[in-house]
Design a binder for these strands. Structure first.
Lengths: 144, 144
DNA sequence: ACAATTCTCTACTAAATTGGTAGAGTATAA
DNA sequence: TTATACTCTACCAATTTAGTAGAGAATTGT
């Protein structure tokens, strides 16, 4: 059930980018240094997110990356899906990767795993990068 | 966020074993055949689950595997943890693999990922193999 | 025009993980 | 004592993960 390092890097980079939405572009090297992410690796990651249409870039001196749209329009789920693929623990319960179970009816696991997928999606699809950046911390539901 | 094939096999095998609790032992080959799991692979899996203390075995003719305790005492989470490790998407939010974040306070991701972990745990720690085996299907909370 | 800067694109790679397989060994029942 | 069924050690190929290398292209400032 773990996120890849790549996805974690992606999320951290996006949090920084969200923080400087409108204040200007952020350079790969600055993000890399601040979050201690290998720079060349981060380049690959940002290109993937850019290809997905969540951020855009400008080259040359005074270049860098920025959000395409306000951070409250982008959820953590979008980034996780771009980097790590579907949220579903079994591909047969993914809303995007539509692969049907061989034994559609008998599959009792499917029901539970769909609940898991939905539980994860409820969190990640609801939280935006604006939420994450806002300083006033909201009370957390759930256990401890 | 995906389960490994191994964990899926483990869950399916455990569902069968739960179904024949008290009716007798189940042989590896029978489980393998019914669930279309490579037999030698399943052997490894069952030994892991046995080592974790969830099932026990008997050797020789008329041997096989069975639950150590009633299926309503065993949750899906227990099996998933044995095979795939912690449920947490980041190891710093696992309740079991206690690894602290480098930047404990600044880590805004942690809060959200803890919510994800809790959401997953709430489902998997609540559902037992007895639940999964019971024929009367319960209505599902959440989306669709 | 040109140099410095910064993103871009193709390619490569080492290490870990995943998803198995092989085969000899040991316990049990009939 | 033989057939059956789990056990244990070891191995392995393919894929994924987590990067690295380096030349190229766009942009800015001089």
């Amino acid at each position: 059930m773990k996120l890849s390092k790549k996805a974690e890097y992606a999320l951290r980079a996006m949090i920084l980018l969200a923080g400087s939405y409108r204040t200007g572009l952020l350079r790969i090297q600055d993000i890399a240094k601040r979050e201690k992410i290998p720079q060349k690796f981060l380049e690959n990651i940002l290109v993937e997110i850019k290809t997905a249409g969540l951020i855009r870039s400008k080259r040359g001196a005074a270049g860098g990356y920025e959000f395409c749209m306000p951070p409250q329009k982008v959820t953590l789920a979008q980034v996780v899906r771009v980097i790590d693929g579907p949220l579903a623990p079994l591909s047969c319960v993914s809303r995007y990767a539509h692969i049907s179970c061989p034994d559609e009816k008998k599959c009792k696991l499917k029901r539970v795993m769909l609940e898991v997928r939905n539980a994860v999606a409820r969190v990640l699809e609801q939280v935006t990068f604006a939420d994450i950046c806002s300083e006033n911390v909201q009370p957390m539901r759930g256990e401890t």
